[in-house]
Simulated scan of single mutants.
Amino acid sequence: MAEPVDAWWRRRQWSRGAAVPYAVGEFRADWASYPVLIRQYHPDWNHGVVLTQIPPAAEVLLIWECDVGHVFVATPAEQRSRPGRERRRSVWCPECAVQAQPQRWPVLPEDWPTAVPVPQRVVRVAGRQTLPAAPSRGFGTRIPAAAGATTGVPAGAGAMPSGAVASTRARSRRPDPGAPRRPKQSVPRSICSKTPRLPSGESFTSVCAPATASAVEAELRAALSDRFEFTFDHSAIRLDRPFFDHVEVWPDIILPELRVAIEYDSTGRHGLEHVGPRQETDRRKDRAVRGVGWEVVRIRTGRLQALGPYDLEVSGISGRTIARLTDTLREIRGALFVDAYAR
């Protein structure tokens, strides 16, 4: 079983009974045919152990950095077996190997149709049966003078006053039950064109992202910044399909190095946030983010239940919450990789 380089080195010191179990240059001939791996290896990131001191078959986790700058963890056997018969530099880095494959570009705003048709609706031919209209009262009808003389009603008693207009409000507001209903007009759907042309899954600073309005989110970002050297200036993630009117989403906190998005959810002042239909929107947002290779960690407060496998149910932001969040990041991406960014 592979283990961190410091634990592996201590175990070798104990098993071989020497402070330096392997001399520098002992395995130089084994690594000479892999110049790319020699360039990717940094002793400073591996507790000062030189690459020529590590046997090629050792089950030890080492930190590597490719020519582009991707930092990843792999064993010597994994690195030596990746090239195979190909000699591209990208095959020695898992991140570059993925990017070397053809990317599926999302639907760009200029390619999106100007109007999305609404689903067809069934036109009702006959409506529900309604009660007949009630007879008008007072001055609703004009009674002729002759009729008034016959019935004993004084002439003009049932007539409308001078200048009055007969009320037709009750009848004008009642639609004809047999008349077909008019279908609603479809609203043209437009996609924002300000999203930059990037591959799906790339994070960036968006001009459309709203400013941070929650003091708790700022406190959470500051607590993570005190512990880790992550990039905190990105505000959006490029998607491969539209999410409402954009092809991007705006998580509360984005960690590009780990490809993890952090969301802080609370019920709000009136207890209506992130519940009901808004909770379904959160689920849809999580699916969109995971669809481009990211993971989502939601910090749920106010008795909100977890939506994903890595969500945290807490009472508020505290030192214990930050510790649980750190352990969750280690569980997602590995403790060795996450601790490499620790301050």
Results as ranks from 00 to 15, higher is better:
274 H>F: 09
198 L>G: 03
320 R>E: 15
167 S>H: 04
289 V>I: 15
215 A>D: 09
231 T>I: 10
253 I>Q: 00
288 A>C: 14
339 D>N: 15
195 T>Y: 01
159 A>S: 10
337 F>N: 01
60 V>S: 06
32 A>N: 08
202 E>Q: 12
59 E>Q: 10
108 L>A: 09
157 A>D: 08
121 R>H: 04
234 H>S: 02
182 R>E: 07
270 H>V: 13
275 V>I: 14
253 I>A: 01
176 D>T: 04
124 R>Q: 13
202 E>D: 06
96 C>I: 07
126 A>C: 15
95 E>Y: 06
122 V>E: 15
341 Y>G: 00
53 Q>G: 06
32 A>F: 09
166 A>W: 07
336 L>N: 01
74 A>T: 05
255 L>G: 00
21 P>F: 05
148 G>N: 03
246 H>E: 05
56 P>A: 09
146 A>I: 10
292 V>T: 04
111 D>Y: 03
66 C>W: 10
266 S>K: 06
28 R>F: 10
97 A>M: 10
92 W>E: 02
252 D>F: 00
182 R>I: 12
94 P>Q: 10
161 P>V: 04
7 A>I: 13
270 H>P: 01
324 R>D: 15
238 R>G: 01
140 G>P: 11
311 D>H: 11
324 R>L: 14
262 I>G: 00
76 P>M: 10
270 H>K: 04
53 Q>S: 08
304 L>M: 07
293 G>I: 15
241 R>S: 13
162 S>I: 11
327 D>N: 09
255 L>N: 01
308 G>A: 10
155 A>T: 09
342 A>I: 07
53 Q>W: 08
147 A>I: 13
284 R>V: 04
112 W>C: 03
149 A>L: 14
150 T>H: 11
335 A>C: 03
